[in-house]
């Protein structure tokens, strides 16, 4: 592909301006996380020095390490749960023709029309009645089943040749052995996509952790940010921004590493 020089210049200009505008809030938060109160008041753009005082302070004022660990456990838990539950369901849809499959499929689709926020009141009471407030299972279990994830994996399972399935049956491989030894290994890419997606969305979850955590024991970083912001708002924005940077680094890294994969996988699951 060749592109004329003026055309190239136009594209690079547009690309650069867009990148600067779009990335500005993140870069700005990063710079502010190194600033002291007086520096902020002066309206400086660059900090005087890149010292870590604000980062030390934020870990001091908030059980941030604890929150990070909680977020990690909850996100990894939902990720693994989703992978297990969705891949089992997708396997049944693709490899086991049975009566009533269309009906079950319709059930799955219909869950996509029910916004989670519309059911949060009874869900809260379910968790409360199970005595699961402030527990990891209360934070994770409601999100294990996911129609989108099932469809995404189903898409990939469908590309597995039927001959492979027949050969496995001839070889005497039961359905579960076929699922575990053949289907899962060849679908690694889709599993990774769904895993990354599940981890990312759970890490960023806000409303549900707000409802079902009432103390610090299993509270996640997102709620920690809300606490930090309401405590510190008038005094120390540098510390608040240090908290923000700590919270977004894991997901940004995940995104940077898996951007290509995620984009491919999500488009497939969404559209076919």
């Amino acid at each position: 592909m060749t592109m004329s020089l003026p055309k190239k210049m136009i594209f690079y200009t547009l690309l650069t301006i867009s990148a600067v505008v779009l990335f500005f809030p993140i870069a700005y938060a990063f710079l502010i996380s190194f600033m002291t109160g007086p520096e902020l008041m002066q309206g400086r753009f660059l900090p005087e020095s890149f010292h870590l005082d604000n980062y030390i302070k934020v870990f001091d004022r908030l059980p941030l390490l604890n929150y990070l660990l909680n977020s990690f456990i909850v996100s990894a838990g939902v990720m693994l749960g989703q992978l297990a539950v969705c891949s089992l369901a997708a396997y049944a849809f693709v490899f086991i023709p049975f009566k009533g499959r269309d009906f079950v499929f319709f059930l799955f689709i219909s869950t996509m029309m029910i916004p989670w926020e519309a059911t949060m009141i009874p869900n809260f009471f379910i968790i409360q009645n199970l005595n699961w407030l402030n527990t990891y299972q209360g934070l994770t279990l409601p999100f294990f089943a996911l129609a989108f994830g099932t469809f995404l994996l189903r898409q990939h399972f469908k590309t597995i040749p039927k001959e492979l399935h027949e050969a496995a049956q001839v070889a005497g491989l039961g359905p579960f052995a076929f699922f575990r030894r053949v289907v899962l290994p060849v679908s690694k890419t889709s599993l990774v996509t769904l895993g990354a997606y599940g981890f990312l969305t759970t890490w960023n979850m806000y409303l549900w952790p707000l409802l079902v955590t009432t103390n610090d024991s299993v509270r996640t970083v997102q709620i920690g940010l809300k606490q930090l912001q309401s405590q510190e708002v008038a005094t120390d924005w540098g510390v608040v921004m240090a908290g923000v940077i700590v919270v977004i680094i894991p997901t940004l890294l995940l995104l940077f590493l898996g951007q290509k994969q995620l984009q491919k996988g999500l488009t497939q699951g969404a559209l076919k």
């Binding site: 990312l200 806000y206 709620i223 940010l225 912001q229 923000v244 977004i248 995940l254 995104l255 951007q259």
Partner: peptide
């Protein structure tokens, strides 16, 4: 550029809101 443009997906609603609150 693609990485930069997709980066806001890695920023949670809570973190983004705090940054915008300051802006």
């Amino acid at each position: 550029f693609r990485t930069i443009y997709s980066s806001t997906m890695g920023v949670s609603v809570a973190a983004a809101s705090v940054v915008w609150l300051f802006m």
